[in-house]
C-alpha cells in the first residue's frame, strides 16, 4: 500500500526532519505571538479611542484574511513593493507572528475584561493597593485562563504552518512529495502510504498538546 517506501534509505528520517522544520517555525512564531499578544492585548483594554480603532482594525483584517493570502502578501507583495528579498522562512515567521499576535491579543483582552468588577472592588475594600490588586488577585486569574488557550494556540499554529509548502519551504508535505516522485517506478502506490503517514504524524504532534490544553482548562475551571 505504499508504506514500504518509508523504510527505504533514510526516507522516514527525512519525513521527521520535515516535521521538525514545520515545528521550528511554529514554535518561534508562537513565542513571538505570545509576547506581542500580551502587550497588544493589554493595550487594547485602554479606553483611548485612537488605540481602539487601530488595534480593532488590525485584528479584524488579520482575522478575515486567510493565512495563505497573508503569506502571499508578505512573500510576494512585500518583496515587490519594498524591493527587499525576504527568505521564505522569514516571511512565514512574520506572517504567523502577525496572525498569532492578533489571536493572542484577543484572548488576552477577553481574559482581562472577563474578570468581574467585584474582584477589583473587593480588593479595594480589603485595602489592597493597585499593584497588590494586580499581582495577587487579577494576574493569577488571568494567567489561569490564558495558559490553556495559549497551548491551544500552539496546535492551531502547527496546523497553520502546513501552508508554508505553498511558498516553497521544504517541510513534511513537500518531503513526502519528493519521496513519492523519486519512487514513482518502484512503488507506484507510495502516495497513499506517505500521505497517510504525514496525516498521522500531524495527529501525533497535535493531539497530546490539545489534550493538555483541555485538561488544564477543566482543572482550572471555577
Amino acid at each position: 500500500m505504499g508504506f514500504e517506501v518509508l523504510l527505504k534509505g533514510n526516507n522516514m528520517l527525512r519525513l521527521l526532519l520535515g516535521v521538525w522544520t514545520a515545528l521550528r517555525i511554529s514554535l518561534v512564531s508562537v513565542l513571538i505571538s505570545i509576547v506581542l499578544g500580551i502587550l497588544i492585548g493589554s493595550i487594547m483594554t485602554l479606553k483611548n479611542p485612537v488605540i481602539k480603532v487601530i488595534t480593532r482594525g488590525y485584528l479584524e483584517f488579520i482575522r478575515i484574511m486567510p493565512q495563505m493570502v497573508l503569506l502571499f502578501i508578505v512573500y510576494f507583495g512585500a518583496t515587490k513593493a519594498l524591493g527587499l528579498n525576504l527568505p521564505a522562512e522569514a516571511a512565514s515567521i512574520i506572517v504567523f507572528s502577525l496572525w498569532g499576535t492578533a489571536e493572542m491579543a484577543d484572548l488576552v483582552r477577553g481574559a482581562l475584561t472577563g474578570i468581574p468588577k467585584i474582584q477589583y472592588e473587593s480588593s479595594a475594600a480589603l485595602g489592597l493597593t493597585t499593584t497588590q490588586t494586580y499581582t495577587y488577585v487579577i494576574i493569577p486569574q488571568v494567567i489561569r485562563r490564558l495558559i490553556p488557550l495559549s497551548i491551544n494556540l500552539i496546535t492551531r499554529m502547527i496546523k497553520t504552518t502546513s501552508l508554508i509548502m505553498m511558498i516553497g519551504i521544504v517541510e513534511v508535505l513537500k518531503v513526502g512529495q519528493q519521496i513519492i516522485e523519486a519512487n514513482r517506478k518502484s512503488s507506484p502506490n507510495a502516495a497513499f502510504g506517505v500521505y497517510a503517514t504525514v496525516f498521522l504524524l500531524y495527529f501525533a504532534v497535535c493531539r497530546p498538546i490539545s489534550l493538555l490544553s483541555k485538561r488544564l482548562e477543566k482543572k482550572w475551571e471555577n
Binding site: T160, Y195, V198, F203
Partner: peptide
Amino acid sequence: NTPLLVQLFFIYF
C-alpha cells in the same frame, strides 16, 4: 488535530 492541506492531499492523491 490535522491541517486541511494534509487531509486534502490524503483524499486527493
